[in-house]
Design a protein around this nucleic acid. Structure first.
Lengths: 162, 162
DNA sequence: TGTAATCCCACGAAATCCCATTGTATCCCG
DNA sequence: CGGGATACAATGGGATTTCGTGGGATTACA
């Protein structure tokens, strides 16, 4: 599990009336260096009220990891059920969306609701994956370090002036 | 067993009066990337009250996997029996159906009964295969993670409002 | 010859493409 | 070093295509 290209940096982009968002160019370049897809995978984050996003290559990696776990414990019926559940969450509870030539995706309504994304989307690189936040929810969350909130405030300010 | 194209995402489609269902386009595209068939294989799921579905290329893969398992334990008579049983399930208890130019299959009545599918079919990608559920049965099943039920509820809602 | 499967066309909604505009960062040359 | 030109990113809006769906017509089969 060593992906050499890592997601980093932050950006605040608008969601337009049609539900479209630009994926920041610096994140797209990582996706395209990892594989040749022009596609991102969206999932609800397990811990935070935001979305988790990554490229298809990372999703495949996650899958093969699950497969290997199963083969080890093939005899155990409890392990079978847990495998089924994980697989459902990893694939049925995610959506793969392509971005167009201008780097935009159409935000799937279900994910938009799950991530509680309004008309602003805050992108945060976190290494192997990146997160998409409603900036207001990030500022409200007590688990988020103050320094990170400062970044969110800065991005909001930047936009408020324009 | 490394398939690069994986089934992912969810959709809720109608079964019409003639018993026809659209296979979601995002699942069809995976089928057609894996092989050049415009066909799906249906089977009763081993654990859940739903149907399991995949492409013919995957069926072949599954078969060779069983074969390899058998060769490993050729001396064990119990393994022989189990092999026969699994092979029967994998091939006799399945149906292969083509989809037409608009992406619809005619639901085979037996499979429809086995999967207890009414006039709504919930499609769930699970990586190597996908599942077809009666959405009500999924909501009733205690083994299904709550987050996944949320997705089913969202899909139902989406449809109810239109 | 009747029943069921397949084909064909049609429609509305939604997704996708394409082009235009703006603002910002970068480059180049005086 | 400065200032204009250039390239790219993000965004808006209109045009086009695709998708899911219904219904009728045609074909296959028993």
């Amino acid at each position: 599990m060593a992906l050499e290209h890592l997601f980093q940096g932050s950006a605040l982009n608008a969601v337009d009336a049609k539900g479209r968002v630009s994926i920041p160019a610096f994140l797209r370049s990582v996706i395209e260096r990892r594989g040749d897809a022009r596609t991102i995978v969206l999932a609800k984050h397990e811990a935070f009220p935001c979305l988790s996003a990554y490229d298809p290559a990372y999703a495949a990696l996650k899958h093969s990891k699950l497969e290997r776990l199963l083969e080890k414990e093939e005899t155990n019926p409890e392990a079978q059920l847990e495998y089924q559940q994980r697989n459902l969450m990893a694939f049925a509870a995610t959506e793969e969306v392509p971005y167009d030539s201008s780097g935009r995706i159409l935000f799937p309504p279900m994910m938009r609701r799950k991530g509680q994304i309004g008309d602003l989307a805050l992108f945060l690189g976190t290494g192997e994956t990146f997160q998409i936040w409603n900036p207001d929810l990030l500022l409200e969350d007590s688990r988020i370090p103050e320094d990170l909130k400062d970044i969110a405030r800065f991005r909001l300010e930047e936009r408020g002036q324009s």
